[in-house]
Design a protein around this nucleic acid. Structure first.
Lengths: 137, 137
DNA sequence: TAATACTTTAGAATAGTTATAATCTACGCA
DNA sequence: TGCGTAGATTATAACTATTCTAAAGTATTA
């Protein structure tokens, strides 16, 4: 439960009240060793599996948005059917397995830095994302 | 109008009947010199501006899907709010201007080839897409 | 020209997401 | 410790994008 204290701290620091629901979602998202990828739908299922009390869908959306804007998680563009989020907020790229509908991290040492030899006047680069779509052989 | 004959041919070759609606959408998508990027919503607006008769939304969706599956256009993942399509189906990457909500092609000579030093067992790479998000300075 | 298979269409249905307003809860202050 | 208040949660309504349906229309082939 020392984790929970960390989550309370984490939430408080970013100005979010540490409610039961937010702490539970923190546990799920940040309590494991690995980062992970999820859609709202998947998160919602995990919550109802691991929790006795239900968390309303509206709260799940609110919390994901709050965590997004506080930089706890980031959004990944795959396609418009599935809206994915990633608990790994560092710059990194992804494989997308079209058969399993699953994202896989590509670590920095697994890809050469992407070099763009062009600038858009008046604009600055906010992020560079590579998405490698893969499918069964 | 020689263009129209080409569109009729193009449609017929891929097994699509050259209907009035499909030809009109071909004109809009492939009649100009440049390739372009569009959402269903934007295409729908352009159609109603440039056309006297209306084309039903369902037909616009059907046609875009048909053109997608025939390889006339391709889909671009930007975010889940906007579903974008591109008339340039060759492999290339994009800037996404977050202020104007606009895609800009990155040509092959403007980017170093992306090298991924990792393979997923049993999977083959279908596409590699780079999305460079930019915003105002 | 007639038969038929393919298309288009309006509107219904669905899915994902956001808004609303009532109830509840965390937290600062007395 | 208890109160008041701002912030949070909730069920449900509303909204938006997309897909489905089935009826009417059109291109094609014989």
């Amino acid at each position: 439960m020392s984790d929970n204290l960390n989550f309370v701290k984490k939430l408080r620091i970013s100005g979010l009240r540490p409610t039961k629901q937010r702490i539970k979602i923190c546990e799920i998202l940040f309590g494991g060793k690995d980062t992970f990828h999820f859609s709202i739908n998947e998160l919602s299922k995990i919550i109802s599996q691991k929790t006795n009390e239900k968390i309303s869908l509206a709260t799940i959306y609110n919390t994901v948005h709050a965590f997004l804007s506080k930089g706890y998680i980031k959004q990944i563009a795959v396609n418009s059917e599935q809206n994915y989020y990633d608990t790994n907020t560092t710059d990194h790229h992804h494989f997308y397995d079209e058969d399993k509908n699953q994202l896989i991290d590509i670590h920095d040492n697994e890809v050469e830095p992407v070099k763009i030899n062009r600038k858009i006047p008046g604009k600055k680069i906010k992020s560079i994302e590579v998405l490698v779509k893969v499918q069964n052989n």
